[in-house]
Amino acid sequence: MADATRPLPNAREPDTGAFWEATKNHELRYQRCNDCEAVIFFPRRHCTSCLGQNLEWQASKGEGTLYTYSVVRQSYHPFFKARAPYAVAWIDLDEGPRILSNLVGIEDPTRDLTIGQRLRVEWEDHEHLAIPLFRPI
């Protein structure tokens, strides 16, 4: 079924394209402001603390904690419908960014997840980019 693929990001989106570009090399990036040291995520052209544009890309180690999650039992999207039940989660990376992703490598997501547990990124490769997913450590 042609539709049964994950909806992929646009690697040319003006603010977040460089994030997705780096995923080809399995690099999980975020930005830090050189002027005020604020962590910026999702990526954009300016600092959300001082509005400056003196930002620098940083590589995350890809580890973090589970802030919250839900297990989706019902979806109308063909790709996700076939994968239900699956976990969607907000993950706090150790460097500060909070990222939305899916959790993988869990036998029963309705039972085997705990808020606060440690997670590590793992990559799902696609032709032009890779999707960061997270697995319990």
Binding site: R6, L8, P9, D15, R44, S70, V72, V88, A89, L100
Partner: peptide, 21 residues
């Protein structure tokens, strides 16, 4: 936009958005 481009890939349904709260 940029936020959607960071979130769309993971199949967050409307209900699961609220369920995470």
């Amino acid at each position: 936009g940029p936020a959607d481009n960071m979130e769309r890939f993971c199949g967050m349904t409307l209900v699961s958005n609220y369920a995470m709260v």
